[in-house]
Write a protein that binds this DNA or RNA. Structure first.
Lengths: 210, 210
DNA sequence: CCGATCTCTGGACGACTGTCAAGAGTTCTC
DNA sequence: GAGAACTCTTGACAGTCGTCCAGAGATCGG
């Protein structure tokens, strides 16, 4: 009856539990990776027992996909603040580079999980729909940064959103691996690389000022 | 006694068997990925039984690492012909782009395995040494292409070998995933992207001709 | 041709996996 | 507060996994 009002009881609790479970699962997944995370291990790192997973999720795969989609939702607006706050092109580049570095430091487990899942989707077709959707969302996120950067620089992007995302993703992935291997200077390197690369993503302004 | 002469008998046969086993294993690994390839499945797809693996390899991990190193050895000179044959910068770019596309078509399973292993190495420290070594070899390979391209174009590279490799690897990985998802136009897209990107990897010639 | 060494098979092991179901515990409804 | 509905625990199941091993078969030196 009361479908519109925010009564907290019936199916909301169910969804909330799913989210709580997914959050616990993400911790384990980020630590062990997709392949080595068993449902028992996931449950051990949560406040539930291993059987409860099949009460809230039909499958292990459904749990995994739900987890990744949940992670995506919390991660996809990470750079919105940078885009909104920047008033000059240089400021945007610096903020973007800093945020990329911060992401690696703060969320390395989540991002290696993402690359793990994307690799798995090359083998397992059932993962592809979710992976492609997330990839598209990340591409959109990057494009918001680059197109804003172009506007601030009074220029226009020289490449398609897909290419820009591919290039930056390659650098990010490389830096993440280097960071996990505790290589010296990877973070500063990434920051410098972004500063170098961003201007190359722009075509010379059609109408140079004046 | 005869350590120098090429007598084919004693330990050579042992090594040859290791290579044969590794080749069979690579087929299975490329099809199923690292996580889902069991030793029994690997043995089933070969002419041996599952017990023989522990006769030639101490570990599953030793087998895997041996396989990947063997693959690397056959793959790392893929672009040498293009580099040697090209007489102009444009020719080199075209040959390189064609070879990248050809690689995706002919060796998609091997390359998704590579990305799988590299992702796994973010979780499993025991894989990192081999992965980092292969990554370095691939970076060198790419750098041979780009530095030759710069010479032919009478310019010099604008970025470090590491950055160049990261950028191209990002595009390649994106194209591989798209190809495996049977997306239309990914191969032509990759070719065009390489044509667009390569000139940007060069700094303007110090001494413009004339 | 016999004994020694190398090569390989096939089965067994304990551990671990995803899935499920029976039932205990809890919460809600009337 | 009794009964129904929901939530969760626990144990069991059929598989699969990596690993190991006893012994068959092959190969080779003498």
């Amino acid at each position: 009856m009361t479908t519109a009002t925010a009564r907290r009881t019936p199916a909301d609790k169910h969804d909330e539990r799913r989210r709580t479970l997914a959050e616990s699962a993400l911790r384990t997944l980020g630590e062990l990776g997709y392949a080595r995370s068993s449902l028992r291990e996931i449950a051990n790192n949560s406040e539930f027992s291993h059987g409860v997973v099949h009460y809230y999720f039909h499958d292990k795969l459904e749990l995994i996909v739900f987890c990744v989609k949940q992670y995506k939702a919390t991660c996809v607006h990470r750079y919105d603040g940078v885009v909104a706050d920047a008033t000059t092109a240089d400021e945007l580049v610096s903020g973007f580079a800093d945020k990329l570095v911060e992401t690696i430091v703060d969320e390395a487990p989540m991002h290696r999980l993402w690359y793990d899942l994307r690799s798995q989707s090359m083998f397992e077709e059932s993962l592809r729909e979710a992976v492609l959707h997330i990839d598209q969302t990340l591409e959109d996120m990057v494009w918001r940064v680059v197109s804003t950067y172009a506007e601030l620089a009074d220029a226009e992007p020289a490449m398609s959103p897909s290419v820009v995302y591919g290039l930056l993703d390659g650098l990010f992935q490389q830096a993440l691996l280097g960071y996990l291997c505790e290589r010296e200077g990877v973070l500063e390197g990434l920051r410098a690389q972004v500063h170098d690369l961003m201007p190359m993503l722009l075509r010379a302004a059609v109408t140079p000022r004046g």
